[in-house]
Design a protein around this nucleic acid. Structure first.
Lengths: 159, 159
DNA sequence: GACGCTATCGCAACTGATTGCATCAACAGG
DNA sequence: CCTGTTGATGCAATCAGTTGCGATAGCGTC
């Protein structure tokens, strides 16, 4: 099933997940059934998911899934670089699958609207540049959650 | 004890707390012993505190303090505008006493260093201006926690 | 000063996430 | 294929914070 003769190496998302077992072993870590399930769930996930949602999705596959195992595996995978986490407006953990574009979030505290913030958004780039210039600080956009008021709510509120 | 004859109205932090009972009642809300304790603790607090720390400090005064009461009162006080909350780098709640200058936080994910970010910091102002211009979004600086790498760690790490 | 409305409290259960520890099993080496 | 090392798991306890609900009590009104 894989003798397609094509010599080039797949560098897409599929390959990212396929390489995980070996990358773990190369570090002296192990490839276990529990990790296989989580990676499987993650590979079918795009964008962001909360930790709790991942636990639940793993439980659909294996009802015996234990939360601590999931969270510990997420830590390992984050160190491996295949995902990153941030905290949503309410402080809960949110995981981002890295093959997706790195991005942060914008959250309006009045209407509750949430939108993504691409790393190449002009405002984000300006902010990143400002902190780089002024303080030499490198903002991790994937962990960025801005809380405030959106344009609609600002014009709606006179106060 | 208060006939100092001075006609001007105190507008400092002391006054902010002293006015809380009436401001609550003016909204049809109530001034209770539990709220008195929390406000007392807050008035002796400057900068930021976690919710858990506030619960503990209230317990020092009244060992019977119940967490849910504290958190609910904190919500009320936030609505009143005497404090605001944000989430620290690990997602835990952090409360800011408003009489202090509004500020955000900078957190280095490598060395763990944390520093304050004044609202009038050049980089903060540039970021706020960028989001205002580009999206009409008003960043709430008091809820701002930037995660990334500080200048020291960037130069230390070649990678 | 007593009354009644209803905001607030206390409690218990629950959610999301973390930690310590004894046990188990992945996988490298023989 | 068997064995030993040690990383990972399961479990139970714990932490931070939230929610629903019946009981209590603040405070405006009579």
């Amino acid at each position: 099933m894989q003798q397609d003769g094509s010599p080039h190496v797949e560098a897409g998302p599929t390959d990212t997940w396929a390489g995980v077992p070996d990358r773990l072993r190369a570090r002296g870590l192990r490839w276990t059934p529990q990790r296989r399930i989580l990676v499987d769930v993650l590979s079918r996930t795009d964008g962001h998911v909360t930790g709790a949602a991942l636990v639940e999705r793993c439980r659909e596959v294996d009802p015996g899934t234990i939360p601590s195992t999931v969270y510990r595996t997420l830590d390992v995978l984050e160190e491996l670089g295949v995902l990153s986490h941030s905290h949503s407006a309410d402080g809960r953990e949110e995981f981002h699958v890295l093959p997706d574009e790195e991005h942060g979030h914008l959250y309006c505290r009045r209407c509750g609207a949430e939108s993504e913030l691409a790393a190449d958004d002009p405002a984000v780039m300006a902010a990143v540049a400002a902190f780089d210039d002024e303080r030499g600080f490198e903002i991790q956009v994937s962990h960025l959650t801005l809380i405030g008021r959106c344009a609609d709510c600002r014009s709606a509120a006179a106060d």
